[in-house]
């Protein structure tokens, strides 16, 4: 073959070799078709562990009752006992170390998530006591009258 064929061919072969060598260094060893095969499982295996190590923010209500058992008992005795502590008190993270104090959401909007009256006949929403937020003491915070742990006014 003549030079004008060889020269570009060599360039292409050189490029391919460079790409293959670069790939050897760039692609991690654990990259490949894993348990789910080439179509669904082609990935870097160590990423699964990276996701497992993602830091959790929420603990759970049992974690809270480890120290605040007086409060969780009071809460569990009332209807609001079904609501996890962290829904209103915020994610615990590493409380009490970090953060030392949690920010409690006492806003009217938080209560209205469930207690704003909507007509939802095929949903559990209809079984929850609801108010019309524009008529029911508009402008006041719910916690000014109701105890969030046991909101029934008769039992106060």
């Amino acid at each position: 073959m003549k030079g004008h064929v060889w020269r570009p061919l060599l360039v292409v072969i050189g490029l391919v070799i460079i790409i293959l060598v670069a790939r050897m260094f760039y692609v991690p060893e654990d990259f490949g078709a894993q348990d789910r095969g080439y179509t669904f499982g082609y990935h870097r295996l160590s990423n699964e562990q990276e996701w497992k190590d993602y830091p959790a923010k929420y603990q759970d209500s049992e974690y809270c009752s480890g120290c605040h058992d007086d409060k969780t008992e009071e809460l569990n005795a009332a209807q609001h006992g079904m609501i996890p502590c962290e829904n209103c008190h915020g994610a615990a993270f590493d409380h009490p170390d970090d953060p030392e104090k949690l920010t409690i959401d006492r806003s009217r909007d938080l209560c209205l998530r469930c207690h704003s009256e909507l007509y939802m006949p095929s949903s559990g929403r209809n079984d929850i006591p609801g108010v019309n937020p524009e008529e029911h003491n508009a402008g006041l915070e719910c916690v000014e009258c109701h105890n969030s742990h046991n909101p029934s006014l008769e039992e106060m």
Binding site: R113, C114, M120, S122, S123, G124, I128
Partner: peptide, 10 residues
């Protein structure tokens, strides 16, 4: 269970 969902968005 869509029957149980009350749309609180928590």
């Amino acid at each position: 269970n869509t029957h149980n969902c009350v749309g609180c968005g928590f």
